[in-house]
Design a protein around this nucleic acid. Structure first.
Lengths: 242, 242
DNA sequence: ACCTGAACACCGTTCAAGT
DNA sequence: ACCTGAACACCGTTCAAGT
């Protein structure tokens, strides 16, 4: 069997003698395995063997299985970003109506979710929300606010659309430091970093927090949001039935 | 250590010397483990040890790990049925407006999902839809149609509400025999059984199938349904922002 | 620095054996 | 009939060792 001999020769000719491992390459093959055989088929050993390497080698590029699963969601988020970019095309001008912007973004995101049917269940199984998702929300939020929408309604939109597109059924914004386990200065630094990276989200929290009964326990009353979305749908359906 | 000695004596005094295993008892402790420690903690060995038994004993009451997970969803569906029943109370009369019926059902279902935060991810990870879910859909459908709603709009409601309450993001009604792997008479028998158990669902399929472009490949165009729900939300939000 | 081999504690599942 | 013990092929992860 000299098959891998020629394969190796081919790789060598391309430049790197044996293309070195990297987080990106690991995540790419992990996603391919999940697409082909489902999420349960994504094991450290299977991913490694697909890369012609031992399972332990993966630990030099990822903190373990949990990190690999988190990384898979990073991949999904990146693909959504890309799908959105191509959907809007090279022209910078956004549509006048924020509904058109949000609509295009949601359809692009959905097209990615259809390519990766394992993604919604994976999101639901992780204990914390993948950080990249906050970026997606920030962009929807920005588009709505710049389009003249209030923070109150834009907030409700994130709840309603998040559950439809990503399959969220749980809380959305539980503050990163919900448990209060960070030392104070560290927490303050994180807050400042978030304010810079997610300006619209930060403004939304500031704008909404005034009405919250207990701001420390999470300013997001997800029961109220659920009922709002529910009535939105029921009334819309009743109108469509007229 | 005579602790288990007294425990056994207590169990014996209650009637059965050592309460025999049963599917119900296995699923009950499995659900309790998932509630307490997450879905990953639900292993055959852990469930068995919690019941004071060996892992292999579970196979006499369940077809294996997959069957146990399916059973967990049966438990969730049963709890939803129960929550709906208590929400409506003993009086038989349903509200005039179908929106009130559906609203109550969705809120009851959500209260159960909040008790079992692992449920949405589990639904998403199973390859087929838990049969009990069809029963839930049938009842919502019946309430809407009896309330004067068209099958067309009721169908759209199932898509929209299913994703919001249960976290569905995939296809809903893929016919049981999508692969065509059943022998003809067997398939016909299944269809008849479904027609009896799910009369409204059957009627809806019959009513909707006329418009479908390719009825064999599934009459449910989920892309169209997604866009419909999306526009319902976007227009409702815009109205709320007015 | 990056990768490996052997080892450990787990997992689902089988099978023949007990009662 | 129901339950068990030993075994098999897997899994994630560690650690000391190689280069």
């Amino acid at each position: 069997m000299t098959a891998h001999e020629t394969t190796r020769a081919g790789a060598k000719r391309a430049g790197a003698a044996r293309q070195p491992l990297s987080r990106e390459r690991v995540l790419g093959t992990a996603a391919a395995i999940a697409d082909a055989d489902g999420l349960d088929a994504v094991t450290m050993r299977r991913v490694a063997s697909e890369l012609g390497v031992e399972a332990m080698s993966l630990y030099h590029h990822l903190p373990g299985k949990g990190g690999l699963l988190d990384g898979l969601l990073d991949v999904v988020v990146a693909e959504i970003d890309e799908a959105v970019a191509t959907a809007f095309g090279p022209h910078d001008a956004a549509p006048d109506d924020w509904r058109d912007v949000v609509r295009t973004r949601c359809l692009a995101a959905r097209s990615v979710m259809l390519r990766h049917p394992w993604a919604p269940a994976l999101i639901g199984s992780r204990t914390s929300i993948p950080p990249g998702v906050y970026g997606l929300y920030e962009e929807v939020l920005g588009a709505m606010v710049r389009g003249g929408c209030s923070y109150r309604v834009a907030h409700k939109a994130l709840h309603a659309l998040g559950s439809m597109v990503l399959g969220f059924t749980q809380e959305l914004f539980r503050p990163a430091d919900a448990g209060g386990r960070l030392e104070p200065d560290r927490a303050e630094a994180e807050l400042a970093a978030m304010a810079e990276a997610l300006p619209y989200t930060t403004a939304m929290v500031a704008s909404e927090i005034h009405d919250a009964a207990d701001p420390t326990l999470g300013w997001c009353d997800s029961q109220t949001e659920f009922e709002f979305t529910l009535d939105l749908l029921l009334n819309g359906l009743a109108r469509a039935d007229g």
